[in-house]
Design a protein around this nucleic acid. Structure first.
Lengths: 203, 203
DNA sequence: GGAACTAACTTGACAGTGTCAAGATAATCA
DNA sequence: TGATTATCTTGACACTGTCAAGTTAGTTCC
C-alpha cells in the first residue's frame, strides 16, 4: 500500500554547492564542452529544472564554476607564498609554483576559466576571486619593478610566461607529441625569467 | 502548376568549406560554446543533416575548424618572417608579431584551438597544420639555443611568453578591467626576453 | 543518348538539451 | 495551528546531434 517513493533530497541549503561539484566533475570527465544543467541536476539528485532556481541559466552555473576556479587558483598561490623564503626571487618562484600546482591539480578548471566561454562578469563572486588572483600577482611583482618602468610591464611579463607555460603543458599532447619526451620543467624557464628581471634592475 | 521550389545549392564541392566558414562565423558571434551543426547547415543553405555527411559528427567539424585555425596561425608567422630582417633577434620578433597578428585578427579561432575542447587528433589536416606551427617556432629558435641547453627549453620559453601574452590580452577585460588603461605592448616584453636570451648565450 | 552507378545530399525520427510557467511541498514564523 | 515564503517538481516547448532510409544530381560506360 505504502509506495516506495524515490529518495528526496533534504532542503539543507547545500544544493548550490552540490551542483557546482557536479559541474566540475562533468568538466573533468567530458572537457570544456561537456557541461549540462540536466546532468548536474541528476548527479545532485534533483529534478531537471532545479538548477534554474539557483542559477538563472547555464551561464550562471558556468560563472559559479569559474568563480570557484579562481578561488582555488588564488589559494594555490597563497599556500606557496606562505611557505616561501623572504627574498623577492623566492616569492616570485612561489606564485609561479602555485600557478603550476593549480593547473596540474585542477586542469579542468584551469582550462575552463581560460576557455573563451562567456561568463557573467557582473557576478560578485566571479569578480571578487578573479581580482584576488591578480592582486596576489601584483603584490608579489611590486618589489621587482625597476624604476621608470610601469608595474604592468613586469606583471604581464611574469603572468604571460607562467600562464603560457601552464596552458601549453596541458595541450602539448594534442599539438606536438614529439615534445613529450623532453618537455622542460618550469624551473628552467624561471631561470631565464630571473636573469631578465634581475639584470633589468641593474640597468 | 510548376511549383516554386526553394533554391537548391549546386553540388559544386564547396559545401565543406562553406560549413567551416559558417562555423568560424558562429564562433565569432557566440563564443567558443556557440557552435551548432544545424545552424551551420542553415547558414550554408543545406539541410540539417548535410554536415553529417562531410564531418561524421560535431567533433569532426570542430577539428576541421581547428585545423584551419592552425593553418592561418602558421601563415601569420610566415608572412612576418618573409618580411623580417636577417638577424636572429629580427626573426624572433617576427614570429612573435605574427603570433599577435593572428590572435588579434582571428580571436575566435585563437581561443577555440586552445579552449580545451576535444578534437580528433588523428585527423590528418589537424596534425599537419598544428605540427607546422610548431616547426616554424623550432626553426626560428634554433640559432638562439645556447650550448649545453636543450632546444626545447628556449622554444617553450618563447612559446609560453607569446602565447600567454596573447591569451591574457584577449581575456583581460573579463579578469581585470583596471588593467585596460595600461596594458603593455608586446614589444616591452620582448625587450626582457631578448635580454634573457642574449645574456644566456654569453653564459 | 540512355542506363547503371555512386556521391551528395534530404527527410524523418529519436533522445537529449536549456528555459520557462505553473503547481507542489517543505521550512519558517506568527 | 495557519499563513507565508523559499525551494523544488512537473510539464511543455523549441532547439540540439545523430542515425537510418530515401532521393537526387553527376559521372561513367555502353
Amino acid at each position: 500500500m505504502t509506495e516506495v517513493l524515490p529518495p528526496r533530497r533534504k532542503r539543507d541549503g547545500t544544493l548550490k554547492t552540490s551542483l557546482i561539484d557536479a559541474g566540475v566533475d562533468l568538466l573533468r570527465k567530458r572537457g570544456a564542452d561537456g557541461l549540462s544543467l540536466r546532468e548536474c541536476a541528476a548527479m545532485a539528485g534533483v529534478s531537471h529544472a532545479a538548477p534554474g532556481y539557483h542559477f538563472k541559466n547555464i551561464m550562471g552555473l558556468s560563472t559559479a564554476i569559474a568563480a570557484r576556479g579562481y578561488k582555488l587558483f588564488s589559494e594555490a598561490m597563497t599556500t606557496r607564498l606562505d611557505n616561501a623564503g623572504p627574498s623577492d626571487a623566492d616569492r616570485l618562484a612561489a606564485i609561479c609554483h602555485g600557478y603550476m600546482d593549480y593547473a596540474s591539480s585542477h586542469p579542468e578548471l584551469f582550462l575552463f576559466i581560460f576557455s573563451g566561454q562567456k561568463f557573467n562578469e557582473a557576478d560578485d563572486e566571479f569578480r571578487l576571486y578573479s581580482a584576488k588572483a591578480y592582486s596576489i600577482l601584483r603584490e608579489t611583482c611590486a618589489p621587482l619593478v625597476p624604476e621608470n618602468t610601469p608595474c604592468e610591464e613586469i606583471e604581464v611579463l611574469v603572468w604571460s610566461l607562467v600562464h603560457g607555460y601552464a596552458q601549453l603543458s596541458m595541450t602539448r599532447k594534442k599539438d606536438n607529441p614529439q615534445l613529450n619526451r623532453t618537455w622542460p620543467a618550469f624551473d628552467s624557464l624561471l631561470k631565464h625569467l630571473n636573469r631578465a628581471l634581475f639584470a633589468a634592475s641593474a640597468n
